[in-house]
């Protein structure tokens, strides 16, 4: 055995390897995004304006945050259908705390994130401890939360008129104060901050590594003596907290909690995740990918509208893009094995 030389390469292959696979995936999506931007700029002189770019980023911000939450769940090999209505429910609780109870601004922020975390914890408990398949558990949560949103508001929107400054969370612009030429809304900054933070958690912490491990081989983890149920619940709780941030963003952007909103948002978030190269079978995926996925969706929607393409065709285009993105990824995987 020992006579056979082990093929260890001289350079440091682990670094090369790690970044090579990860970046290839992101590069694909990123290149598509750039090409789309160029294409729309050529087709319409009105597309590439500061205001419109900001509008695109703002349109991507809520879906982007939701996509980040869903990415976590999908990497564990699960799926989350409840993020749309969970977001709404978080916004509603925030509104009740601020408007109905008249509490100070920061309590609303805490309430929204906490509500999401608790809802995520409950989803996680259904999935990890009660062994309900994620699709079913989160489908149930989707309906439960939608119902609760309608009940707790009497099905009427709650406005944040008593909380001056609440709309500044998403709509205000700290960047604009420093660089008046670039009024980037805070909502976009929050999206990037969440993306950075969750990327860090995924790549550098125990929780992150277990997220991938659960998606790779949950049973092996369990048989290695890892408390898989606890970790999985923790991941769902984290995802819920992130959804709470999305709830804050949409409440602030609309300056109201709209209890009827939220259905269908989960599918768009899943679409962003998938376009970003995350595998629905779990075990692999990146936050940057999902972020780019959300941007691709926003750019496509905005670009086609600026070009005044009929709305029916916009929907068709979105469907085709999703299929094309995943197919291209499949081709690439077959090549590299």
């Amino acid at each position: 055995m020992t006579e056979i030389p082990t093929p260890r390469t001289a350079s440091s292959p682990e670094r090369v390897n790690f970044f090579a696979t990860a970046t290839a995936q992101r590069m694909l999506a990123f290149a598509s995004l750039i090409i789309m931007l160029i294409m729309f700029s050529v087709l319409s002189p009105n597309f590439m304006q500061t205001n419109n770019m900001i509008a695109i980023l703002q349109a991507a911000s809520i879906n982007g945050v939701l996509a980040i939450a869903v990415t976590l769940i999908i990497i564990t090999g699960g799926i989350d259908l409840s993020v749309g209505t969970m977001m709404t429910f978080c916004a509603v609780i925030c509104a009740i705390v601020l408007t109905n109870l008249g509490m100070p601004l920061w309590t609303g922020v805490v309430a929204a994130i906490l509500t999401g975390a608790v809802a995520g914890f409950i989803s996680g408990t259904f999935v990890a401890r009660m062994m309900i398949p994620p699709f079913i558990a989160t489908l149930g949560m989707m309906m439960i939360l939608r119902g609760l949103s309608l009940i707790s508001t009497g099905a009427r929107p709650i406005y944040f008129n008593n909380t001056p400054g609440f709309d500044q969370i998403a709509r205000g612009s700290l960047v604009g104060k420093v660089f008046p030429a670039l009024p980037l809304p805070n909502g976009v900054l929050i999206l990037f901050a969440v993306a950075l933070a969750v990327s860090f958690i995924l790549n550098r912490t125990v929780l992150g590594r277990y997220t991938y491990a659960l998606g790779s081989n949950e049973e092996a983890m369990r048989l290695s003596g890892v408390n898989t149920a606890a970790w999985k619940t923790a991941i769902y709780t984290l995802a819920g907290g992130i959804v709470g941030i999305a709830g804050l963003l949409i409440a602030s952007r609309l300056n109201s909690a709209q209890p009827a909103l939220g259905m269908g948002y989960e599918l768009e978030a899943i679409a962003a995740v998938v376009i970003g190269g995350t595998s629905l079978s779990g075990g692999r995926g990146t936050i940057l990918g999902s972020l780019i996925g959300a941007l691709i969706i926003a750019v496509l929607a905005n670009g086609l509208r600026v070009l005044s393409v009929a709305q029916e065709w916009q929907i068709v285009a979105m469907g085709l893009i999703i299929i094309a993105a995943v197919y291209a990824d499949q081709l690439r995987r077959q090549k590299t094995g």
Binding site: E14, R209, Y212, A213, S216, N217, E219, A220, M221, L223, S224, G283, R284
Partner: peptide
């Protein structure tokens, strides 16, 4: 099936 997370690294 029960021992390894195949897509992950040796180190992990």
């Amino acid at each position: 099936h029960y021992g390894l997370a195949l897509p992950m690294s040796v180190r992990d």
